[in-house]
Design a protein around this nucleic acid. Structure first.
Length: 875
RNA sequence: GGGCGAAUAGCUCAGCUGGGAGAGCGCUUCCCUUACAAGGAAGAUGUCGGGGGUUCGAGCCCCUCUUCGCCCACCA
């Protein structure tokens, strides 16, 4: 027998990970004879290392996958990383900036080299985190959204949509980030309420007959105004429609137009219209044939069209415009106003709505099947409330701006013909126009939105469009596990993409897990600086502890507030398991390794096996329903409160005996521990493997042992009821011991006045009671002599009175007070329950079972109250 | 403006289809008892956010209000 250290040391994890890896347990091959279970993990961005929020998500993957593997499924969990276009490009640009360089200084080619260097560095770092966390992903099948095969998939996808006419080039007001210098999609804009102002300007009539007051939150855009709109039904502006206004500062004549868009209730009812810099104004402009004048450039500075303001930053221009309007006496008023300002999700810069030519993807046709997939239940959300979120968006989805003016990403496979002006999309290099045959074609320099490529993830990683081998067997995947902030960005797009290109759903379940907050309740996020590196906690408390802490909090209802304290607590649990195992191992001497003799099991054995079975049931139910916190709790409670606190203690005296009794205890200890290790393995893979290897087992690794299944032949309600009596008795005696301050080492004698059946039970469990309650002698009596009653401390539970001689140790007054307090609480309880029995309606309407239960409660409480009173009187 | 979630012990949270309020941390007392002091034993602590309603019975169901958090939305 090897000596195990007293405290669990989690540092052996790396070795075990290597052992599994070498055995090839993580790798999956197509095998039609077996049932598959497949997941493609959400590829993390290669922008940096991961935080606890990510760790939660990926740990959930590993827990599900490890269990399925143990259940005999042929499991593929496919990992990889995402090039994350704009995000990664920004990171590298920031790094360049520290060297005093911009990407333009070094050029596209050199810049991309730098990004690849970055990708390799951070990709490796993430990989290291994954391995340290113990994730059993199939590293042989690792993918990257810009690897060769994947690029082929992106081209194929684009060309397919293009040729179906779903992709078009159009001029629209899009969200422009002046810092990233690219268009971004609607869902990449984050709106933030910011205190601002509503400026009211007077626009004079051309004919000098007064003015119209318009309000704006963006004064600088007035330089690009080409109309003022009013509601056609607005009495205040009756007869004014069609009249011309002279736009201040610019001196341009602009018409008053009537448009239903204008809200009668808001402001003055007159709206300045800037078609080039506001999506609504753009629409109004289209309806009224208004000119579109760009006054803000791509860099966020005013353009030549802005006249004397040209070259000013937009913020500077705002101040100037307001000052100049004021100088002209045309500033009507300034109101305080809280404004919802759009900012770039990647860099936080205020978005500039900008009229721009971009590539768009039509969404209407794609959305139809994607809606159907969820309403029909083919794709299920967990928790299901997210289906609503998804559908809401999908049903109102707008065309998707897919082009980005970036360098890092998939260059759009479209060539423009310089002769006929038409576009040709092609998966291969294109040297001639498909419309006129001209050789004078040039490739689009824009890249695709990074989500265009990640939308293909589940099937592109399995070989699409080059090979069907993996897809035939492993696709669709079983579940997608992700955070809720990318339901639109990613989940939705994978669903419609898979339906479009494969005519299949990409996954059956979508499991949305909790958002991890730090202790202050702030969302954990790298960009917010609130992220915590999981490896720090691993270093401090061990991987298994971190994994368990995360999983035990992964409830469906709430986001989780994460603190070290929780992990520290789990470390205690790991240590508890470790030491329980040490105890078992130390006591296996002479054990032949054979299973227990069922005919000779004692009540305690039957009890723990019944409890174990219950735990197996609860754990499986939890995992099956994605209620992993329930599973974790069930195992934790069982192992600590039942196995360690009771069964091991119960086993001790029996282990000191020799023969059949001892052998059976050894067998039961082994069985319970071995089963528990298999049960817990998905959550705490390392400690369970280490222990499992050290106790009698079959097979080469717990990782590939079978996952426990409920065995109802182990259920034994009678044993559970009997054990609960014994446990009550032990607790009662311990309570008394604590009250009288009996030293733990000093045994006390015990006198019991019990009903016949209870007495039988206690007699059977005599050894146990003596050992657990530190009792040296148990006397069964019919009564205590009246005069002697004051010499005892007593306790009572249904069917049994307990007396412990107190040998003058106790303060009678104090004891009276204690009993009086207890009596008070019992009587309070009693009156509550008695009231139910006194209620005719309860008696006539409540189910028989409930009535019986209440009757029993009242009976018990009445008896207890009587005993307490009697006791009080005797003191 | 719409939607979703949350409000339970000092703190972080469980509480399944309504039927005697729970865990962990923290706190009090005792204990280094040969598995474990990263531990053990025994305790104290709650108008289950407020107000209505349904029911024999509500932490749980319905209505309403309040306070937080998160999404979505073109109100200048």
């Amino acid at each position: 027998m090897t000596e195990l250290p007293k405290n669990y040391d989690p540092s052996s994890a790396a070795e075990l990970y290597k052992f599994w890896l070498d055995k090839g347990y993580f790798h999956a091959e197509v095998d039609p004879s077996r049932e598959k279970y497949s997941i493609t993990i959400p590829p993390p961005n290669v922008t940096g290392s991961l935080h606890i929020g990510h760790a939660l998500g990926y740990t959930i993957h590993d827990v599900l996958v490890r269990r399925k593997r143990m259940q005999g499924f042929n499991v593929l969990c496919l990992p990889g990383t995402d090039h994350a276009g704009i995000a990664t490009q920004n990171k590298v640009e920031q790094k360049l900036a520290k060297e005093g360089l911009t990407r333009h200084d070094i050029g596209r080619e050199k810049f991309l080299e730098r990004v690849w260097d970055w990708k390799n560095e951070y990709g490796a770092q993430i990989l290291n985190q994954f391995r340290t966390m113990g994730y059993s992903f199939d590293w042989d099948r690792e993918r990257f959204t810009m690897d060769e095969g994947y690029s082929a998939a992106v081209k194929k996808a684009f060309v397919t949509l293009f040729n179906k006419g779903y992709i078009y080039r159009g001029a629209r007001v899009i969200n422009w980030c002046p810092r990233c210098m690219t268009a971004i999609s609607d869902i990449e804009v984050e709106y933030k309420d910011q205190p601002s102002h509503l400026w009211h300007f007077k626009y004079p009539f051309e004919d000098g007959s007064g003015y119209v007051v318009v309000a704006t939150t963006r004064p600088e855009t007035m330089l690009g105004d080409t109309a003022v709109a009013v509601n056609p039904g607005d009495k205040r502006y009756e007869g004014m429609v069609g009249k011309m206004l002279r736009l201040p500062l610019v001196d341009r004549l602009i018409p008053i137009v009537a448009d239903d868009y204008v809200d009668l209730e808001f402001g003055t009812g007159a709206v300045k219209v800037t078609p080039a810099h506001d999506p609504n104004d753009f629409e109004i402009g289209m309806r009224h044939n208004l000119e579109q004048i760009h006054v803000i450039g791509n860099d966020g500075k005013m353009t030549a069209e802005a006249g004397k303001y040209a070259g000013l930053d937009r913020d500077e221009a705002r101040k100037q415009v307001v000052a100049d309007i004021d100088a002209l006496g045309l500033l009507d008023k300034i109101e305080d106003y809280s404004h919802n300002v759009g900012t770039c999700a990647r860099c936080g810069t205020t978005i500039e709505p900008m009229l721009s030519e971009q590539w768009f993807c039509k969404m209407k046709e794609l959305a139809g099947p994607a809606i159907e997939a969820v309403t029909s239940g083919a794709v299920k959300f967990h928790p299901d409330r997210y289906a609503k979120t998804y559908l809401e968006w999908m049903e109102n989805v707008r065309d998707w701006c897919i082009s980005r003016q970036l360098w890092w990403g998939h260059q759009i496979p479209v060539w423009k013909c310089e002769d006929c002006g038409k576009y040709t999309a092609s998966e291969d290099e294109c040297d001639s126009c498909s419309h006129c045959g001209s050789k004078n074609v040039t490739r689009e320099t824009d890249v695709l939105d990074t989500w265009f490529s990640s939308a293909l993830w589940p099937f592109a990683t399995m070989g699409w469009p080059l090979s069907e081998d993996l897809l035939d067997y492993f696709y669709p995947t079983d579940v997608l596990i992700t955070a809720r902030d990318i339901i639109y960005l990613w989940v939705a797009r994978m669903i419609f993409s898979s339906l479009e290109y494969r005519k299949q759903i990409p996954f059956k379940d979508v499991y949305i897990y909790a958002t991890v907050m730090n202790e202050e309740g702030k969302r954990m996020s790298k960009s917010l600086g609130t992220g915590v590196d999981p490896l720090e906690l691993v270093e401090k408390y061990g991987v298994d502890s971190l994994r368990f802490a995360l999983i035990s909090q992964a409830g469906k209802n709430q986001d989780m507030r994460f603190s070290d304290k929780r992990v520290e607590n789990v470390r205690g649990f790991a240590n508890k398991i470790w030491n329980a195992s040490r105890f078992v191992i130390m006591n296996l001497e002479g054990y032949d390794g054979k299973p227990m003799d069922e005919a000779k099991l004692e009540t305690a054995d039957k009890w723990i096996l019944s409890r174990l079975n219950d735990t197996v049931k609860a754990a499986n139910k939890g995992f099956d329903n994605y209620d992993m916190d329930d599973a974790a709790r069930a195992i934790y409670d069982f192992m600590w409160n039942e196995f360690c606190d009771w069964y091991i203690e119960l086993a001790k005296p029996r282990l000191r005996e020799e023969g059949e009794g001892k052998r059976n205890v050894q067998a039961v200890l082994t069985k319970v521990l071995e089963t528990s290790m298999r049960l817990l393995h998905p959550i705490m893979p390392f400690i369970t493997e280490e222990i499992w290897q050290a106790i009698p087992h079959e097979g080469e690794s717990v990782m590939v042992a079978s996952y426990p299944e409920a065995d109802d032949s182990l259920e034994d309600k009678e044993a559970e009821a009997q054990m609960s009596v014994v446990m009550d008795l032990v607790r009662a005696v311990r309570n008394i011991r604590a009250e009288i301050g009996a030293a733990p080492s000093k045994p006390v004698p015990l006198t019991l006045i019990c009903d016949g059946d209870k007495a039988e039970l206690v007699k059977k469990a005599e050894v146990i009671v003596k050992s657990l309650a530190k009792v040296d002698e148990i006397t069964f009596a019919d009564a205590i002599a009246e005069g002697d009653k004051g010499k005892f401390m007593s306790a009572h539970f249904p069917g049994c009175d307990i007396y412990v001689p107190m040998a003058g140790l106790v303060d009678v007054e104090k004891e009276k007070e204690r009993i009086a307090n207890e009596l008070k609480s019992v009587e309070k309880d009693l009156s509550k329950h008695q009231a139910k029995l006194d209620n005719e309606k309860f008696m006539s309407k409540a189910p028989e079972e409930i009535k019986q239960k209440e009757i029993n409660i009242v009976k018990e409480l009445t008896e207890t109250a009587a005993k307490l009173k009697e006791r009080l009187a005797s003191l």
